[in-house]
């Protein structure tokens, strides 16, 4: 109940800025358009493996829209700002676990971004590039599950970044480092199997492919839903880490503002 209420409130808060976010959608559209154009250019003189040019366009366009449900969530779930203002001390006193509280709010944000960013951007790409869409209902179902798990992994990672802000004022950089690794290793722009050796290995042993690569592969019908067992394993691992980190930060809390 509390989960739904917090998510709903955050969704409603975002509604105030719909028109402003539309400009952001244009920028996001341009980014994706650039990446699609690059693959079209490469596809003119090269074979693009099992994807082909058409498949690669769908791959990049879907990934670009997915970013709004995975990577482009609130930086450190707002914890960095809370530490600066001292709000974190009040948040920790609430009769609800901090992780659950912030996660619930963030799901509201993600749902807002699904409606006002993911859908509009993907629809534009759909009409502009005549994208391939799955024919079976089950593909949509498993893609949705994959996206929810990917969103959860991103929430956990941002929570951990937020926890670090208790010890350094530069935690915002970790958000960008996570962003950089994700861009490189998640298969967002280049499918993971085309990464050079070391980076391929690095990607395979990281949670990043479960944020973008496998989600899109399931959507395109190249991957079975059984790969989601890996997503579940990462979700469990990160949940344990987040709970452990919260218990550590409860022992000693220093805030900058207040």
């Amino acid at each position: 109940m509390l989960f739904a209420m917090l998510a709903k409130k955050n969704y409603a808060r975002n509604l105030q800025y719909r028109s402003s976010h539309l400009v952001h959608n244009v920028a996001s559209f341009i980014f994706g358009f650039v990446y699609v154009s690059i693959w079209i250019g490469i596809g003119e003189s090269n074979s693009l493996g099992e994807y082909g040019v058409k498949g690669m366009i769908t791959y990049v366009a879907f990934n670009q829209a997915c970013l709004w449900l995975t990577l482009f969530i609130t930086n450190s779930l707002g914890m960095e700002q809370s530490v600066r203002t001292g709000q974190i001390s009040l948040d920790l006193m609430r009769p609800v676990h901090l992780f659950y509280h912030l996660m619930s709010k963030e799901w509201g944000q993600i749902f807002y971004q699904f409606v006002y960013k993911f859908l509009p951007i993907y629809f534009i790409y759909f009409f502009l590039f005549s994208l391939q869409v799955p024919q079976q209902f089950s593909t949509y179902f498993w893609t949705a599950i994959a996206l929810i798990l990917a969103g959860y992994i991103c929430i956990c990672i941002n929570y951990l970044i937020g926890v670090v802000s208790l010890w350094t004022t530069e935690s915002k950089w970790l958000f960008w480092v996570n962003y950089a690794f994700s861009m490189l290793l998640s298969g967002f722009f280049i499918p993971v199997e085309w990464l050079p050796g070391v980076f391929y290995q690095l990607s395979m042993y990281s949670p990043y492919p479960y944020i973008q690569y496998y989600v899109t592969r399931i959507y395109l019908g190249y991957e079975s839903y059984s790969v989601l067992l890996g997503s579940v394993a990462w979700c469990i691992f990160f949940t344990v880490l987040c709970l452990a980190a919260t218990s550590i930060m409860r022992k000693k809390l220093e805030v900058q503002g207040g």
């Binding site: 490469i42 960008w176 962003y179 861009m183 722009f189 280049i190 990464l195 050079p196």
Partner: peptide
Amino acid sequence: NFIFSMLMAMLLNVSEFLMIAFVLLKFNSI
């Protein structure tokens, strides 16, 4: 903070370049 932010900015830019470099290494040219 100064050194940490400098290193992080460098890492961010390197990864941005690697993203396109990997594509070019595989397909030689655009």
